[in-house]
Design a binder for these strands. Structure first.
Lengths: 145, 145
DNA sequence: ATCAATGCAAAGATTTTGCATCAAG
DNA sequence: CTTGATGCAAAATCTTTGCATTGAT
């Protein structure tokens, strides 16, 4: 894998969107890539950014995350805990699902999609064309049963 | 159907939870029952409450909604728009799904569940016991295609 | 009569905005 | 150069909390 693959992709994507490619935006993307499974809030992302990029401001993080959301680079996970949380959005496939343990609070990713059939039924029954989905399961993980 | 059915249920449920049955709590429940399909935020619920119950305070609404959530009378819908939104929680069955139109913003309920098979696979593959779920589909409704 | 629930206002927390400065194209 | 992006601080939002009072049991 090319070490610059992420940077090149991002720069090109910004050009397509008529947006400027900046060090801060790249840094936010890098952090998301590195800690994607943590479903970080804006605050958590900002805290991690400051380690490598001390001067970065909160406003930039919020604005960058909004932009990334609009560009479909990331999406909101919505764990309903008072923070807006984000994860990378794989644009080649529908989103994975989240298994949220009611006991320990852990959030486990489940990579299989398995909703194609249901989405087809939705189109047939309701005339609604599905582009993506967000599915959370609540229950008990194997450690907490 | 008995006109007092809702009230009687609620009073009993509060007793079981060691909570007091108050006019304000009943009023919040009534509003939820009447406008459930609106997926109202706390603010919207408060606004509607004030029509019939002018003196009610925001804090009471927030506290009541938290209590209802804990009692599993309602659940958070999580439409990711900056507000915490709620709907009644049918305790006899898993939650219905939401079809969210990316164009007009409408939120359509889909009553069929159809996730039993998937939930069984989750238990087999991941050892995770599903109690409930929250599924949102994003796309275009039939009016916006 | 007791103790929790309410209403009000103040405080907290998260997110957004205005503006001068800086930097990408 | 020009225009948008950044950082800071202030403001705006949404939600929670403290406390005196009210009301349910």
């Amino acid at each position: 894998m090319d070490a610059n693959a992420g940077k090149l992709d991002l720069k090109k994507k910004f050009q397509e969107f008529g947006q400027k490619y900046t060090a801060q935006r790249q840094a936010v993307f890098d952090i998301m890539l590195e800690h994607n499974e943590l479903h970080m809030s804006s605050e958590e992302i900002h805290a991690r950014l400051k380690q490598m990029h001390p001067g970065i401001g909160v406003a930039t993080v919020y604005r960058t995350l909004q932009l990334f959301d609009k560009m479909q680079i990331i999406r909101k996970t919505g764990l309903e805990d008072g923070f807006t949380r984000y994860e990378l959005n794989d644009q080649n496939q529908h989103a994975h699902h989240h298994l949220i343990c009611n006991s320990c609070g852990n959030v486990i990713n489940m990579e299989d999609d398995l909703l194609d059939e249901l989405e087809e039924q939705i189109y047939i029954k309701m005339g609604f064309t599905v582009h993506n989905h967000n599915l959370k399961f609540y229950g008990l993980c194997k450690n907490c049963v």
